[in-house]
């Protein structure tokens, strides 16, 4: 009985994660009133939206989220977090290139010229936010990749690394969300609300975990 319950609760967790971070954003994309474009362009758009939702999901794939850590081993969670990160971070590092990619296949401004225009439009808050977020993401990705070496070299404990990673993530997610809401091609009221709720909930849980209530540590079951 107890085992069954856990398994079905596990299922529910997976299903709700899929629903919240994949189905919901796709639904919001489809129901949004942005005009349809070519298959390539719309595919890139959907991928970007899912990727961004998965980015938000990272905030929840951590040890402090009670419901998940009840059913999964910490290693399972962190594996999931790692794999997602390995996919999402390179994807978003390529994000500016993906925007101009379709221009390789159709007429218009040369892709490189377009890219240069994009990353030099400093009058735009959204672009500045994006550039900073991109830089932060790069730092996040590199430090995460080399975290053991980093911890060893700097002589700090692993917890310090977690603080660093967590706080940098919150800063990054805030800027990235703001950037997406400011400039997103498919952004609409509902999608903005979705991003804000996810980012805010994730951030608050993380902060509560580390700062407000550092005692609540739930280990792996």
């Amino acid at each position: 009985m107890g085992l069954n319950l856990i398994i079905s609760a596990k299922k529910i967790t997976i299903i709700s994660a899929l629903l919240i971070f994949i189905a919901l954003p796709v639904l919001l994309f489809i129901t949004g009133d942005s005009p349809g474009r070519t298959v390539l362009k719309d595919s890139i758009s959907i991928l970007t939206i899912i990727a961004f939702a998965l980015l938000l999901q990272q905030l929840f794939l951590t040890r402090h989220v009670k419901t998940i850590s009840q059913f999964y081993k910490l290693s399972q969670i962190s594996n999931r977090h790692k794999v997602t990160g390995y996919i999402i971070v390179p994807f978003f590092l390529l994000h500016p290139v993906l925007i101009v990619l379709p221009r390789f296949f159709e007429a218009g401004v040369e892709p490189l010229d377009a890219l240069i225009t994009i990353i030099t439009t400093f009058e735009s808050t959204g672009v500045i936010l994006g550039l900073i977020a991109w830089g932060l993401m790069l730092v996040l990705g590199i430090t995460a990749l080399f975290r053991y070496r980093l911890v060893k070299k700097l002589g700090v404990n692993y917890k310090a690394w977690r603080y660093f990673h967590g706080s940098l993530s919150i800063l990054f997610i805030s800027l990235a969300s703001w950037h997406a809401i400011e400039l997103g091609r498919h952004i609409n009221y509902l999608m903005a609300v979705f991003i804000i709720i996810c980012a805010l909930t994730g951030a608050v849980m993380l902060v509560r975990h580390y700062v407000v209530n550092p005692v609540i540590h739930i280990g792996a079951k």
Binding site: P35, T117, T121, S124, G126, G184, R185, H186
Partner: peptide, 13 residues
């Protein structure tokens, strides 16, 4: 011109 979505404000247009 029907709509502008995802404008970054570069002014090229």
């Amino acid at each position: 011109i029907h709509s502008i979505n995802g404008c970054i404000g570069c002014g090229e247009c």
